[in-house]
């Protein structure tokens, strides 16, 4: 199986702080990869590098045939293939749920408004929010806003979806509703990379779990084996999550 995302020996610093110190991993089509690890271990930065939101200093990243590290990277073409959902939702506050979803398809792909509206309804339906089309972000709960953000990303029909701690700002109940949407996506065959602190979700849904530590991939293991890691560091990290 050819890799959809491939990182090879990626290095990245913020000033004197070395955040990624030779990170390599691959993600195949339809795989769900969960990145876990302490705060500051570089997992979010690695995710942001995949979408060219951060520049890397050394190594290479290939995403759906785009060379992220290259001089001639077409960022807009890359972002047609990659969707990303953030911890802070980042919905556009002056637009309704439906308009948030319609914006990129109409602007970027030139889809007509009627068709875009149908697409938006369709995506809202997939995240269980068909009845919230006309609501503004401030009228929605955090979980609902995050599901709209997922729908907004889905509307661009990306080949890979990135999730950057998307449930970290939510209470357990709202977390549950967002995770259910993500589980549906995974089951539908979407290639997904997620940075998460939800160990239960990683165990249940992830094809692979990547444990990041000190800017490196410390251990990679199948999701179902998360309870039984090889390295003592990961065992300790899991043990702290009771």
């Amino acid at each position: 199986m050819s890799a959809v995302v491939k990182l090879t020996d990626v290095h990245k610093s913020f000033g004197p702080l070395k955040v990624l110190n030779g990170v390599s991993f691959e993600v195949g089509r339809g795989e769900v990869v969960a990145m876990i690890g302490q705060s500051g271990s570089g997992k979010s930065t690695a995710l942001r590098c995949i979408n060219a939101l951060e520049k890397i200093e050394q190594g290479s990243i290939e995403v759906c045939g785009h060379a992220i590290h290259g001089e001639k990277l077409d960022k807009r073409a890359l972002r047609l293939d990659v969707g990303i959902v953030f911890q802070s939702y980042n919905l556009f506050p002056h637009l309704t749920a439906e308009q948030n979803i319609m914006l990129a398809p109409t602007c970027v792909k030139g889809i007509g408004r009627r068709e875009a509206r149908e697409l938006a309804r369709d995506c809202l339906n997939r995240v269980g929010l068909a009845d919230k089309a006309g609501h503004y972000p401030e009228q929605l709960s955090g979980g609902q806003q995050q599901r709209v953000a997922i729908a907004r990303s889905l509307a661009m029909q990306p080949k890979v979806m990135l999730f950057d701690e998307v449930t970290s700002a939510l209470d357990p109940q709202l977390t549950g509703e967002v995770l259910r949407v993500m589980e549906d996506l995974a089951r539908g065959g979407m290639t997904m990379i997620l940075v998460t602190h939800e160990m239960g979700f990683a165990r249940k849904v992830a094809t692979h779990v990547i444990y990041m530590r000190q800017g490196k991939v410390w251990e990679v293991l199948p999701g179902h084996r998360l309870n039984d890691p090889d390295t003592p560091e990961l065992r300790e990290f899991i043990g702290s999550d009771l």
């Binding site: 047609l80 953030f86 914006l103 970027v108």
Partner: peptide, 20 residues
Amino acid sequence: AQVEAAECLGLNRRQTYWHV
């Protein structure tokens, strides 16, 4: 972060400026 979200959706600078 709003600008970042717009860029990640593929909007160009002009579109980002106007809409977002």
